[in-house]
Simulated assay, not measured.
Amino acid sequence: MSSRDFTYDAVGATREPGACPPGFRPLHVRTRIGEGEAVFRRAAEAVATWEMHRALGLTFDTEAARAAPGVEVTITVAGLLRAPCRVVWTVEEHRLAGWAYGTLSGHPESGEEAFVVDRTGDGTVWLTVSGFSRPTTWYAKAGGAATRGLQHAYARRCGTVLRRIASDSADD
C-alpha cells in the first residue's frame, strides 16, 4: 500500500446512507439492474472485480483482482485525466455487496464514492452509486455545474452498463 494520504478527513463515511460532510456535494443515483439471485450474484461479481468500471471504457489500473480495503486504483479518462484512489471499505453479504474508494493526492476531486449492489425482499436488484466530493484542481473548479453533471452521468452509466452485464449472464 502506498503512503499517499487521502485528500479528505471523513474516510469511510459512505458506509452510512446519505452521509455528506460539510463543504462537500452529495451524489446518490440508484438504478434497477434486474431481478433474482443470479442477476444479483453476477452484478455483485462485476462490481467487485472492476468489470463494470472497465466496461465503461475507462482505463482502470490496479494490481488487485478484486476490491479490498487498501487496494489502490488509478482511473484514467481519455488518456489525460488521472484520478488515484484507494478502496476504504467493502461489503459482501447475502443481499448486499460492494465497495467504496476515496481520493488520494493527485485526484482532481476530493471525496469518496461507493458502488453497492443490493437485492430487496421482492428480488429486485439495484445498483446505488453514492458519495460526496468537492473540486480540488483549478479545472475541476472551473467546470462547476458541468463537472457535477458529468459525475451524475457517470453514475447513471454505471447502472446502464451493469444492467447489460448482469442481464447477459442471466440469459446464459
Rank of each mutant, 00 (worst) to 15 (best):
S133G: 09
D61W: 01
Y139S: 08
T120G: 10
A10M: 11
D118T: 12
S169D: 13
P21S: 02
V117Y: 02
A83G: 12
E109P: 06
L150P: 01
A44C: 05
V88Q: 01
D118Y: 12
A43F: 01
G18S: 10
C85F: 06
G144S: 06
C20F: 04
I33D: 10
A38Q: 14
E37Q: 15
D118N: 08
E113R: 06
F6G: 00
T31Q: 07
V87R: 04
Y8P: 02
P108C: 05
A48W: 03
R86N: 05
D61V: 10
S130E: 13
V91H: 01
V87L: 09
R86W: 08
H28A: 11
L104M: 09
R134P: 04
P17S: 11
K141G: 09
P17V: 04
D61I: 05
E45A: 14
R4N: 12
T124S: 10
S2G: 07
V88D: 15
G79I: 15
T59S: 10
M1Q: 09
A83K: 10
L81D: 13
A68G: 14
A19N: 05
A145R: 15
A146H: 12
V91Q: 11
F115M: 04
A170I: 00
S105P: 03
A78Q: 13
V71P: 05
A43L: 00
E92P: 00
T74C: 14
E72I: 11
A97E: 03
S133D: 14
V39H: 08
P84T: 07
T7S: 14
S3E: 11
